[in-house]
Design a protein around this nucleic acid. Sequence first.
DNA 1: GTCTATAGAAAGATAGAC
DNA 2: GTCTATCTTTCTATAGAC
Lengths: 193, 193
Amino acid sequence: MSQKLTIQKRPRNAGATREAILQSALAAFARSGYDGVGVREIAQGAGVTGVLVNRYFGSKEDLFSAAVEIAFSDDSLFTGDASQLATRLTDAVLVKTDKAAEPIDPLLLLLRSASNPRAATILRDSIASHFERPLRSALTGRNANERAAMILSFFAGLQLFRKVIGAKALTDGNRADLYASIMAAFQSMIGGG
Amino acid sequence: MSQKLTIQKRPRNAGATREAILQSALAAFARSGYDGVGVREIAQGAGVTGVLVNRYFGSKEDLFSAAVEIAFSDDSLFTGDASQLATRLTDAVLVKTDKAAEPIDPLLLLLRSASNPRAATILRDSIASHFERPLRSALTGRNANERAAMILSFFAGLQLFRKVIGAKALTDGNRADLYASIMAAFQSMIGGG
DNA sequence: GTCTATAGAAAGATAGAC
DNA sequence: GTCTATCTTTCTATAGAC
């Protein structure tokens, strides 16, 4: 009767465990920010204990680095057909992030973790290489660097007010009016030389 | 020789002490965010110990509420002459926050504290009443609510990329080009119906 | 490969002396 | 009115059993 068979242990599979931890971390950092989530909570989301997080990633900070690299690896918003850029960005702000089970949102992760100095440093470098550079390359005309940074700033600001602050005008307002206004603003920044 | 005269105690002055704590909290929350600073550190900045913070404000959360109310009490950016709104906003982004010893920056406080759920709730309410409402009143034309939220989003996003992320294009780029680009974007949002 | 148990640090909050 | 000292909780990280 003293058998410990009641304790459920995860099957031994290092690769799958590591990936599960990474996905859990991605979601947790986007939901609660670097300081707002503990290693225990991340581990629980992956069905393991906190020990394995440090075993596979070394430390919480190293885990955050790995999660950021994955979160920022998708630059499809900014590469590709430049003539559809305003539409893609507006859709990303208004439609993709509507209310459905949002996937891992890189900008939410950014916003909620940037208050930690070590996390901010990690984020700074990844933002520049993964987002600023491709967007700048997609722009034509003068001041492409400045306009790329402006477009990213606007994109991030919209998500901040929509998903973090919860500004009513951006969450409950008339959808068509909102779409037109945001689209016009993006086009002004993209087209302007 | 056992006299405790070597221990420096702050003169007894409740009002001044309370104000010193509040100013220290304002600066600390803007610098490190709600989670990034402790009651002890705030107290040290005011020359007292952590006890008095809780004595005067009840809890860290209540102190944060008091600090937010002060940080968001200045709405002069959004009230006043609407025809100069774009200039005021652009100046606020580029000039006021240049590199000099910035005063307490409300948006920096917002950005760095929004990851904490309780802080986010406090911020949400203050943003709406102190910033969204006056800006909406200053706008003419259609969709004033949506455009007001858009303008605030852009303003916040620029500060995020300039001061938190440190995007080079916004910190080291050509000043005149940057000024013109940002001004044009603001004017597009302000003027558009 | 994964667990339990715990060490060590730091946080918010409180009791009680002066 | 302000302090020192301490309680309690929570966190990251590690040691060692299985």
